[in-house]
Design a protein around this nucleic acid. Structure first.
Lengths: 346, 346
DNA sequence: TTGAAAGCGTTACCAT
DNA sequence: ATGGTAACGCTTTCAA
């Protein structure tokens, strides 16, 4: 592997000239520059980033921690982060913690050891001290995206989760639902609590409660949704509509309905959050999250800190309800309407 | 940020003692070791990986290049690579080229500049010289996964694509289809060609051709499938069944059918390849690829090279047909059967 | 069992 | 416009 030294020798100039010819950090005569570039080409020289980082005390690398890269939400958000990073001539290390605390802890260490210039945290969990310590040390700026971290109050970009819950409540109540359910990921996640709070507030504003037994917490993924749906539909008085705190879980709910012969939306209306690409394919009514923008904004926030320090205020993004075919009037409501229509005819 | 020097001072020992206490590369007396560890803890010391790599000439980092991280195929494969990497105490840089040549070129440079110890290549494209040059220089071993690289003959792990095509052909012909179509990504991709070849060979063995106008190449993603399906179904004599070279495109085909009111499988049977998680949700018949295993095997291959050099033989994995609800007898065939059944009744 | 010192490939500063 | 050289933080000889 050719080094800067080899290039210098090949081009017949000093090391520092090569360095500057490549970085453009000081004027270089055109012929010299050309000779250097030719030597680079001939030797297939690629500057060693480790050495560069070591000498310059900046790695030009950002860390991105996501909860589960196989949730389609993250790749898009990651792309947002990455594009902004690339604009700033940075690159990205993506760490998928898979909801596993040990793994998450290790990744934090890796990112710190790698001396990344900053971290975008999109993993929710972080129950562990590791991140708190890192933040406390203050060496590496961290911004959160999508999910605020418990007890940490990082700068970041978040969906207006309460608003999202309200919108869903309005939609379902308007359709005629009276018995409503909620399915969410682990209860300690701020987003889950906020979405539920908004949902409850929304239904309450129409004079409707959300019964305790109709609120189920489960694993954050499709399987969790499936399990929760089974519990919910087995109730004596099952809800006619359910708000599911994210699309992956909502897909699980749909799967449960399919496999147990429940009609959607006839027997159960389902609303998710995220608007994953697959939501369109399966006709899932959901709250749209601007995933790419959330990632990009988080990255911009990070560069803002990197460049001018400080603790920028959190950015809150507007939810948007996308109505598809997984929501409709409840069955009893339909027969009700039909009955009235018939009365009218007479 | 505390350095090894700080730790040495704090613990009252030399730098090399700290280094060895941490790496365990030479015997250290218990009390000394403890003092060092305490100092590390107190200062929150994290070894600088750049410096370490520079000094030891090994980064313990692998590069993973994927075509499109938002294709659910990749995360799972990536997980396979990552798990094996972690077992070897390596970490992973994931690069998503997005099918963009410029981006791909840049990433290759990044990985080389970062001095990764090896690269798993899962992106197909690589029409560019960059990778060829890198391979030619021979500094960094590269293995391919899922898609062999044109003109490069890397060690790697691949699906038996011809076999997959044959299996699909057998399945569709057995259902009674006579007019068959094929939709694939860019024709220069080896997998696409191989899957088509197997498909054609399979139908031929039943005495059936695949008409030229029924073979469509398009963009590798869902949108491409949608476009291709539109072309195919607009034909004078459209096929009654189509083999789509990957699930994302197949989802696009399904989407086209839905939006244009075509029944699946009544009007068109659809088979994909990959068996993405979403395939189950939408009931897509498809060829199962062991994604995780493909990734893990590729990583193992890479470590094999790293440890003992050489050029291991390519690993080929068996395809498996998963029949779901997107395939069935063609409509005319159904009426045909019904007609016969009625005849039988009389 | 420990310490000193020579690199590793760059950048950045001080000269010229 | 160019060259020399001291860092950067660590690993790895070589000595003791």
């Amino acid at each position: 592997m050719a080094t800067i030294k080899d290039v210098a020798r090949e081009a017949g100039v000093s090391i520092s000239t090569v360095s500057h010819a490549l970085s453009g950090k000081r004027p270089i005569s055109e012929p010299t520059r050309r000779r250097v570039l030719e030597a680079v080409e001939r030797l297939g020289y690629r500057p060693n980033w480790n050495a560069r980082s070591l000498a310059s005390r900046s790695t030009r690398v950002l860390g991105l921690v996501v909860a589960d890269i196989s949730n389609p939400f993250y790749p898009t958000a990651a792309r947002g982060v990455e594009d902004v990073a690339i604009q700033h001539d940075y690159s990205l290390i993506i760490c998928s913690t898979d909801g596993d605390e040990r793994r998450e802890r290790e990744y934090i260490d890796v990112l710190e050891a790698r001396q990344v210039d900053g971290i975008v945290y999109m993993a929710g969990l972080a129950a562990n001290r590791r991140l708190a310590e890192l933040v406390a040390r203050g060496g590496i700026p961290v911004v959160a995206a999508d999910e605020q971290l418990r007890d940490l109050d990082l700068p970041g970009v978040f969906l207006m989760n309460e608003r999202a819950g309200e919108m869903v409540a309005d939609h379902l109540v308007a359709l005629g639902h009276r018995r409503l359910g909620f399915i969410g990921g682990p209860r300690h996640l701020p987003t889950v609590g906020e979405r539920l709070a908004g949902f409850v507030a929304g239904t309450a504003s129409h004079g409707l409660p959300v019964a305790d037994e109709c609120v189920i917490y489960a694993d954050n993924r499709a399987e969790g949704g499936q399990v929760a749906a089974a519990v919910l539909t087995a109730l004596d008085r099952p809800p006619t509509a359910v708000f599911v705190a994210n699309d992956m879980m909502a897909l699980g709910v749909l799967e449960h309905c399919r496999s147990s012969g429940l009609a959607v939306p006839g027997d159960l209306s389902v609303v998710g959050v995220d608007d994953l690409p697959v939501a369109r394919l399966v006709g899932l009514t959901t709250i749209h999250q601007p995933m790419y923008e959330i990632g990009a904004t988080a990255a911009r926030l990070l560069f803002e800190i990197l460049e001018s320090g400080g603790h920028p205020a959190p950015v809150r993004v507007q939810p948007e309800l996308v109505v598809r075919s997984s929501t409709g009037p409840p069955l009893d409501r339909i027969s009700d309407l039909e009955a009235r229509a018939q009365l009218a005819v007479r």
